[in-house]
């Protein structure tokens, strides 16, 4: 059964347990940071930061609010990064059938056009290493989940903002919670619930939380000619690989 996350931002307190647990499990080093006038730190994803709690102060209806968005890879149902990378090497990015995990492998370092892979992501997630073309992002803790554990970020969450389980179960949980939250926040919505395995629930306009909280259907982020082409040929390549695989 394929897997999914439900991220309920209305329960998130930005304790950043998920951000730290992710680094701890992956053995990723801390990046040198400074306080530049914001609590959000590191300021953005990087090669060693797969999980980042984004924090935005917003004035909504004349009242201050502080919106938290524990950002990560959405593990798209049809991942454009994979489609783009496949143009060069089908093994650079793996889409695991059993879990639905989109996994960046070491082979991403051999991709010449890493830029297209990065810019194909509607959620601005993958990041490149400083000293090679290798790219990295959330791996769904595939080593944990295939051994009966929950992802590190979910385990660390005290409030139930981070949830993990079978995709159908997460979709149902997201819908049920949305109905509940809409009683207090009529504009609450789920972010691209049909396209992703990591479903975010937000109380307000997703753009208030993060520029790339939802995919922008009208204006693709930076669709290169190459990634557009990749999208077009994808079904063909799938069947092709099945034929010869």
């Amino acid at each position: 059964m394929s897997k999914g996350f439900f991220v309920d931002t209305t329960r998130c307190t930005a304790c950043r347990g998920c951000q730290v647990a992710c680094k701890q499990w992956h053995g990723n080093p801390a990046t040198p940071t400074e306080n530049t006038g914001f609590h959000q730190n590191p300021p953005d994803f990087n090669f060693y930061t797969y999980k980042l709690v984004r924090m935005h102060e917003q004035e909504i209806d004349g009242r201050i609010d502080w919106l938290f968005f524990p950002d990560q890879c959405r593990h798209c149902i049809a991942p454009p990064c994979k489609a783009t990378a496949d143009m060069e090497d089908e093994h650079a990015i793996i889409h695991d059938d059993a879990t639905g995990c989109v996994l960046f492998t070491e082979k991403t370092k051999d991709l010449d056009d890493y830029d297209s892979v990065i810019s194909s992501c509607p959620y601005d997630v993958p990041r490149k290493a400083a000293d090679s073309n290798q790219m990295a992002k959330c791996d769904m803790c595939i080593d944990r989940i295939t051994n009966g554990l929950r992802p590190a970020c979910v385990t660390s969450c005290p409030t139930g903002a981070m949830n993990f389980g079978d995709l159908k179960e997460m979709q149902a949980m997201a819908k049920a919670r949305l109905t509940e939250v809409q009683k207090a926040y009529p504009n609450a919505k789920l972010c691209d619930p049909d396209d992703v395995r990591v479903i975010f629930l937000v109380a307000y306009d997703p753009k208030l939380y993060h520029e790339y909280a939802i995919a922008d259907a009208q204006a693709p982020r930076q669709m290169t000619r190459k990634s557009l082409l990749a999208e077009l040929v994808r079904p063909l390549r799938r069947s092709g690989s099945r034929l010869f695989g």
């Binding site: 951000q19 730290v20 306080n35």
Partner: peptide, 25 residues
């Protein structure tokens, strides 16, 4: 702050926590 504990002796010595709140503000 959540990320540090007491005078920070333990947490200032934990790189992932220091990364999140690196400096006096």
């Amino acid at each position: 702050v959540t990320e540090h504990w007491q005078t920070g002796l333990m947490t200032r010595n934990t790189p992932w926590l220091l990364e999140a709140e690196p400096q006096m503000f």
